[in-house]
Design a protein around this nucleic acid. Structure first.
Lengths: 241, 241
DNA sequence: AACGAAAAAAGTGCATGCACAATTGTGGTT
DNA sequence: AACCACAATTGTGCATGCACTTTTTTCGTT
């Protein structure tokens, strides 16, 4: 254990960099849902006092990454199956809206880039790893977000995506999910290129909802106890191993 | 000026009630966009120390109601015309999504309530005040939010609505905007009752965007200096008086 | 009188201390 | 041995103090 991981002496406030740090830990799964975070410990870990840590917790709570219980500290956010599918629904709607706007506003250069990158991604389906495809997948969606030119919607979508991240691990590990995903992307790209705004919204909504179903299925299959009585909330179900 | 406005001694943390207080002041326009909020003063006003005030500021910043400049305090959020129309666009998309889901999921009791309240609201168009119609308008949209059964999307829509509130004042003061609004509502209600999900999404999007245009127009017309060089951001333009 | 530099004032950001709430541990009672 | 009350411990929530940054005021120079 290194003492006090020197919270980069850059500009801005100390708080922001600690927020980044902890958010990454949560999103990446290093801090599993349900983990209790206590101010004292974090203060020592980052070599600051408890005051900025408390502020950090506030930021994380605002992002929905942790839950704050008055007088009882904060824990990494846990989601009930209902809450998870609700979040996915929101994600699907947001991405559908962004895709629709992208179809209407994308310029020719952006269209070319999207088409080219998508076509290249076919290699990843056969030869790439899940992680590589996952990375391309993020790029694919980011291109569409960008093209929609709707910063506020984009922001909401990205926040929602971040909240889902701890529960999306290894989404592409399921049987031939990669090729299914590619085909869905393909339909989306074609709809964008032909300017079919309503169509692309429908396709994107379905695409995200498929991912949602996969996530739920994956988690269900990897439950320690298949159908137990008392585990309403999802803690991290271990995937990347 | 009463000293220390006894921040209701209820349960929960002190911070939450102060957040409510200040959020209300901002949303209602008591604290105009651009107003600087300093911790010291607020601490005295609410009879607490600066620490919980700082936390309060964090919450308000997370909601987008204030802007935080490191080492330079917080000010009530100000929006450039572009940012304002961007926010309205997001609002339009969110409400369109919610309306679409509502059309698919509304039960018969909810349909009856919506239709009844909408029909009754015709009186307000002729006999009511702007404020009364504004209040009904909120109810109308809330009914649809509720019926969509999509808590996360609903939350995003409500947060966005709150952020827009300081800039929406007196939106119904413009010529016959009331009857126009009622007609738009009418089309929306009919689409919901016939289960035309895609149609209601389109109508709702247009409805919110009309409000957006009205807002922009109203602000433009009430600008102190019609076309000046240097006022990129909108402070509160005084309406309710 | 206008301008600029330096000093003073004001205000933020973080550390630390204390009071109180929640949790855990212990011992007594049935 | 199981259960409950009470004490000890842990940890949160807020107050206060100090250092440093930003802003304002003052004062000397042109």
């Amino acid at each position: 254990m290194k003492d006090s991981e020197t919270v980069s002496p850059r500009k801005g406030t100390v708080v922001d960099s600690i927020v980044q740090n902890l958010a990454d830990d949560i999103v990446s799964g290093q801090l599993a849902p349900g983990t209790k975070l206590d101010a004292q410990t974090m203060a020592e870990r980052f070599g600051v006092s408890r005051t900025p840590i408390r502020e950090t917790f506030g930021h994380l709570a605002a992002m929905g990454l942790v839950t704050h219980r008055p007088n009882r500290g904060v824990v990494v956010a846990t989601l009930s199956p209902e809450a998870l599918s609700d979040l996915y629904e929101a994600m699907a709607e947001l991405e559908a809206s962004l895709a629709r706007l992208a179809a209407l506003r994308m310029n020719s250069h952006q269209r070319e880039t999207l088409e080219r990158l998508h076509n290249e991604s076919i290699h990843l389906v056969r030869d790439g790893t899940s992680d590589e495809y996952d990375q391309f997948n993020r790029t694919f969606h980011a291109l569409i977000f960008e093209a929609a030119r709707s910063p506020q919607l984009q922001q909401l979508a990205e926040t929602t995506r971040t909240r889902l991240a701890p529960f999306r691990r290894a989404q592409f590990r399921l049987n031939n999910r990669l090729s299914k995903s590619w085909e869905e992307h393909d339909a989306i790209v074609r709809a964008i290129l032909t300017g079919d705004a309503e169509g692309v919204a429908r396709l994107m909504r379905a695409h995200v909802q498929t991912v949602s179903a996969m996530s739920a299925e994956f988690i269900a299959e990897h439950q320690p106890r298949p159908v137990a009585a008392s585990s309403p909330d999802l803690a991290y179900q271990g995937a990347d191993g």
